[in-house]
Design a binder for these strands. Structure first.
Lengths: 211, 211
DNA sequence: TTTTGTCTGTTGCAATTGCAACAAAAAAAC
DNA sequence: GTTTTTTTGTTGCAATTGCAACAGACAAAA
């Protein structure tokens, strides 16, 4: 079972408080559907999702929407990880959530003198690495050559993550289509074929791989 | 003009030698087309491309090939960044090249005591961040909804990187198709249309955006 | 509790894409 | 400099996908 790294690995509450004090971290609360704007001028800022769920979304001028990434508790996001002027990106709170912001340079410079900050830095790297893994997975999904293969690859990934052939979809099909970058109705059609051909079963959002 | 981060930022040759000594780094030479196997048992190993060009490729059992990523001088790759058992991945030397391998835990633990190692760690994070940016770009390309849009998005990215409407393709069209995950002949056809409709000109691999 | 909005499920039709197959050009190997 | 391999360029045809439009289910808000 893969361990999902967290920036708080080996940290208890007290250590966390000390650390956040050392790093001058700020925690901000957002309501669901609220926009999160975190680019504070020229500084490299890191956002840590403490609670709730956050998504990075691209809106095309055509009205097309693509879910670029989803961040859950313990995930981090940062403008350091995004080329800003490629297209219109926004980060949105999906649920009510709490996000802590840290200044990157602060984190590095404090790592020299504070063991806690170095440990945090270490955790931070593991989290970025894991983010990279997620991105790679995404790329692997997107580079499969048909909707059928995209769906199966996605389902297999979910099955692997939940360690079972049966799992609950936590995307709506509308969102899944945006995530896999395909037309929703075409996705529904392919899903129907997959059910008809007994590749999967789908009892309202509970998917089972039948092979 | 965006600065591409390097793990050797602020390092001269002497510092680099000292650092590599501290970290017990090993540099290995590969001939072009040679396979690079870098997973040294259970350790987290980081490969730094010193010279030449390296690609990460997925081969499907169907014979399909997808170029997942390309690493140039100063880029890093690591098994930390890849979920190993998803599909058959290989890392291959495209040209003759030199790759330095570093043990991740070594890098972290030495950062505490060695200023040089901490600086290297800092650089390392910037490089990973940049890798993430590249992955995001890739995802943005892959999530556009047609071959035409993929091509245009790719061309625009290259134009932006070379800071000019004219630039040289360094992929063959065969490779570009594998990179954009589309059929080669379909890509050629779309390219023809783009030329006919005066969106671009293409004088043997020198592309110009005409809009 | 009604209203409003979003999500699911479906379908015909058109557009796009992939596949297969081939010839010519270019590049690499000998 | 000749041979071999790879890449480019093209096309007809079939399969897949997107688009548009709709009805019903479901959820959220008033």
């Amino acid at each position: 079972m893969p361990v999902i790294p967290s920036v708080y690995q080996n940290f208890d509450d007290k250590m966390r408080r000390i650390l956040y004090n050392v790093l001058s971290a700020k925690t901000i609360l957002y309501k669901s559907n609220q926009m999160i704007s975190y680019s504070m001028g020229k500084r490299n800022v890191i956002g840590i999702v403490e609670q709730g769920q956050v998504r990075m979304i691209r809106y095309e001028y055509t009205g097309e929407r693509t879910i670029l990434d989803e961040f859950d508790e313990g995930d981090i996001f940062s403008d350091m990880f995004v080329e800003s002027d490629f297209s219109e990106l926004s980060v949105e709170a999906i649920t009510n959530c709490a996000v802590t912001f840290i200044d990157y340079e602060e984190m590095i410079s404090k790592a020299e003198s504070s063991k806690l900050a170095l440990q945090f830095l270490n955790n931070f790297i593991h989290v970025i690495s894991h983010t990279l893994v997620k991105r790679n997975e995404r790329i692997e999904l997107l580079t499969t050559r048909s909707i059928r293969n995209k769906l199966l690859a996605y389902f297999e990934l979910q099955a692997k993550k939940s360690n079972s052939k049966t799992f609950n979809l936590n995307y709506s099909y509308t969102d899944l289509a945006d995530y896999l970058a395909v037309d929703r109705s075409a996705l529904m059609r392919e899903l129907k074929y997959l059910k008809e051909e007994k590749f999967i079963s789908d009892v309202n959002k509970k998917i089972t791989l039948l092979y």
